[in-house]
Computed example of a mutant assay.
Amino acid sequence: MIFGPYTFLILIIFVASLLIQGYLSRTYGQWGNVRNSRNLTGAELARRMLDENGLSNVPVNPVPGNLSDHYDPIRKVVNLSEANYYSPSVSALAVAAHEVGHAIQDKVRMPALVLRGHLAVPLSLGMNLAPLLLLAGVFLHFTGLIWLGVILFGAALLFHLITLPVEFDASRRALAYLNGRGLTGGRESQGARAVLTAAALTYVAGFAMALAQLLNVLGIARSQED
């Protein structure tokens, strides 16, 4: 890490991110041990929700890993971690409904999701290059490289900013479906909301980290010009 005026803020956000990850793991684990009253597995819930939204052509597949659940907009597949695919827990319902929420976004061509899809590959490359360009610029005293790194850090912030409404909307769709179909109620509804809220906090932390990093490299760039 190159130290700048916001390095301490980055460290604080990093620690907060670790705490949020721990909170997510605890919340997910807690409700992962609670069987939902409808005895639906994540796979069954996803299949039902997809079919009811005119997405019977979208398959639901199990994938290895912990919390590796995701919707693949290129292959049009809902991928659920094996634990959520086979489990009839409250956590499995919440996560499965969230991923199907992304599939519905794809169907209706939600602008933020479409934009994120177009920017994902180039911005991921830029995010990997940004620290290298910054380091090279500082050590070579080449301000052009430093400012190019700043631009790429700004692009990373843009990606995180676009991600927030996409994830929040998917969780909104998930909770609306679960509660609207009577699949969760009372304590189960609270559990599903808790799981999705904990997951949302990780995206907020990611945005905060990207913002702090951008402010930090801006400070470094300005100091190099003085």
Rank of each mutant, 00 (worst) to 15 (best):
P73S: 14
P73W: 07
I74A: 13
I74C: 04
I74K: 08
I74W: 14
I74E: 14
I74V: 13
R75C: 12
R75K: 15
R75Q: 11
K76G: 08
K76N: 15
V77Q: 15
V77Y: 08
V78R: 08
N79A: 10
N79E: 14
L80D: 05
S81I: 00
S81L: 00
S81H: 00
S81D: 01
E82L: 10
E82C: 12
E82Q: 12
E82W: 15
A83K: 08
A83G: 12
Y85I: 02
Y85M: 03
Y85W: 01
Y85L: 02
Y85T: 01
Y85P: 01
Y86M: 08
Y86R: 10
Y86V: 11
S87W: 01
S87Q: 01
P88W: 14
P88I: 13
S89H: 11
V90I: 06
V90N: 02
S91Q: 09
A92R: 05
A92I: 09
A94R: 04
A94N: 02
A94I: 12
A94C: 07
V95T: 04
V95M: 03
V95A: 00
V95R: 01
A96E: 03
A97P: 15
A97M: 11
A97D: 14
H98F: 14
H98D: 15
G101V: 04
G101A: 06
G101F: 12
H102Q: 03
A103W: 02
I104V: 11
I104Y: 04
I104C: 04
D106W: 11
D106P: 06
K107Q: 12
K107I: 05
V108A: 04
R109T: 13
R109W: 08
M110Q: 09
P111A: 00
P111Q: 00
P111I: 00
P111M: 01
P111D: 01
L113Y: 11
V114L: 14
V114A: 14
V114Q: 09
L115I: 12
R116T: 05
G117D: 15
G117F: 05
H118D: 10
H118Y: 15
L119N: 01
L119W: 05
L119G: 01
A120D: 13
A120V: 09
A120N: 09
